[in-house]
Write a protein that binds this DNA or RNA. Structure first.
Lengths: 224, 224
DNA sequence: GTTTTCACCGACCGATCGGTCAAGCCCGGC
DNA sequence: GCCGGGCTTGACCGATCGGTCGGTGAAAAC
């Protein structure tokens, strides 16, 4: 995707944005992710960019707009990133790829991931708020489509699709609260472990290997 | 538990605390949960309690202390609440009860639940910070103990225990981001659905009913 | 060469933040 | 009666917040 080719450290698809604007969005995103919206002042952002606070108001109308650009941008970016990493094959493997790709995005663009998924925030600008919800829903609906595919193919049970989507996303979305890059496995490995648990279940009993499964890499799956 | 008998709207086990202190903790907890720590001012708390801001400083030394009392208190409370609702029986059913009880606490004391699980916050007071981590770990270790029990009893596979605990807690901890009391099933019902998915897995195949299972209530499980 | 445009800055504003303080109110003990 | 101490208050503080303002310097447009 040419859309993605211009991606730069978690800030992409900001139409006709200057380098300075991209820099501001990148630094602001990092600060929002680590200290929160309320905990990040315009002075902090300006300082991180090495520019004056006034300049922020030259490029953006206010603090909310910066946050909105970060949140909307990273939400779209996550969707494109994941979508482009879904291979052809059995639907269940697409779900697996979805989880691994989301985890990879989390590892590579941590702050953008946090901005796109953990942000509360009610945008007073109705149009912008709606756009963000649209993009988030697109990501979620994409997953639900994969789940429905897997059901139709008979690979998974006739489960509640939205609820299953929430369960899968929960396992990934909560990762930022406990993941320790120094100790844990990589996010991608964690995603594979979670997929195994979710797909095969915790209940004891022999597992049925399904066709199309990639060989487990580096002896992962069913660890401990 | 006599400890729990004095619980009052999500603020309990605050040793020798006056009514006023309990009131402040309750209102502050509600505000912290809805608007965040940075988004809640001391004026807001005072206003919600119908008292002057100065009075807050008579009962607490600063804002951090209020937050700490809320977070530490609700973390302990959640543990006690859940622990007292685990029935005797097969370990897998204890895990199910753990999830349902956590969901019930979430439904009944929403703000306290948010304070105990979603709070970032690094307490500058070392002693207090350590105490909170201890209490949170106790809750998590309690769940891990149940998982180990289920493995030893042969009810679930030899999965990675900490990772399984994280998966279970993720499914519950993320609920506050999408749960809609007006539309969804109750949190307890959601917890049962998640338990079913986690325990039996998404993969298609006939399910084995195990002994000791309560009859599914109101036709839930395997919804859609 | 003049004018317009644009990225950029330092100084400043009113509002609000967390926190302080001296003083009142209230009530039981003497 | 009054006295001491805990509960409670309003006025106030310096710091910091988001945001504004007039202006600068250099390149682009004419």
């Amino acid at each position: 995707m040419t859309e993605l080719s211009t991606m730069k450290d978690g800030v992409a698809n900001q139409a006709e944005a200057s380098d300075r604007v991209l820099q501001i969005l990148a630094e602001a995103g990092r600060l929002f992710a680590s200290k929160g919206f309320e905990g990040t002042s315009m002075r902090d952002i300006a300082l991180a960019c090495g520019i004056s606070k006034s300049l922020l108001y030259h490029h953006f109308s206010n603090k909310d707009e910066i946050y909105a650009r970060v949140a909307v941008g990273s939400t779209l970016e996550l969707y494109l990133f994941v979508r482009d990493r879904i291979p052809d094959g059995p639907p269940s493997q697409k779900i697996r790829a979805f989880m691994v790709a989301t985890a990879e995005y989390f590892r590579r663009y941590r702050w953008a991931w946090i901005a796109s998924t953990t942000a509360f925030w009610n945008d007073p600008d109705r149009q912008r708020h709606k756009e963000r919800l649209t993009r988030r829903d697109r990501f979620e609906n994409f997953l639900r489509g994969l789940i429905q595919e897997a059901i139709d193919a008979g690979e998974i049970r006739k489960v509640d699709v939205p609820m299953t989507g929430r369960l899968i996303l929960s396992s990934l979305n909560w990762m930022h609260r406990w993941y320790n890059p120094n100790k844990s496995a990589t996010p991608e490995q964690i995603a594979e472990i979670f997929f195994d648990m979710l797909f095969n279940g915790l209940r004891s009993g022999e597992l049925i290997e399904f066709p199309g499964a990639k060989p487990p890499r580096a002896g992962r799956r069913k660890s401990r």
